[in-house]
Amino acid sequence: MPPPPQPPAFLATRRGLLRMGAGTAAVLSAGSSLFLSRCNGHYDALVPAGQQPRVLSGKQFAVLATFVDCILPDEPGWPTAVETRVALRIDHELAFHHDQLVDDFRAALYLVEYGDFLHGGFTRFTRMTQPERDAHLHRMQRGWSLEKQAFINLRLLAVFFHYTDERTWQHIGYAGPMFPVASRPPADNRA
């Protein structure tokens, strides 16, 4: 059937993000488990107040929230990414997908957080200043295939979920649906 370009290609599925090889995939998967699964004070401080992830660990969620904040920085008069709960909706969305896809997602976050190490640096993404984070994302955007895939998919998810929030619509010239919301899908990532 036709159409099209339904929403963005978003995320990677099936080992997609790990296509650089089984060995590297194993290292990244192990890394994401070892380094991002336990929470500590640094990461706790990055988690938006009142937002509890269901699928991701506290550290993973903190990296995601920091990434989202970088993609969608606050702008006076606009709803913030914390208000639209972008990171939390992404986390909740993962609950509806199979384990491999979720593992790929975790690996993408691992690349964001520790990607600097791959280029000879020693700074985690969440420890960077804002200009450093922007530079890091620019490098990912132009980096190895795997880095590019991680960046483009995470970015797409962040933007999509932010701009499906009705509070953003007046800013982008969208009048919204013709009907009030009649029923949420049972499998709702807002819930």
Binding site: P7, P8, T13, H97, L101, I152
Partner: peptide
């Protein structure tokens, strides 16, 4: 949508609609 919009080819170049 199949895969709730998230299904893609292995290298994520193509989003399956």
């Amino acid at each position: 949508d199949g895969g709730r919009g998230l299904h893609a080819t292995a290298d994520t170049q193509c989003n399956l609609t």
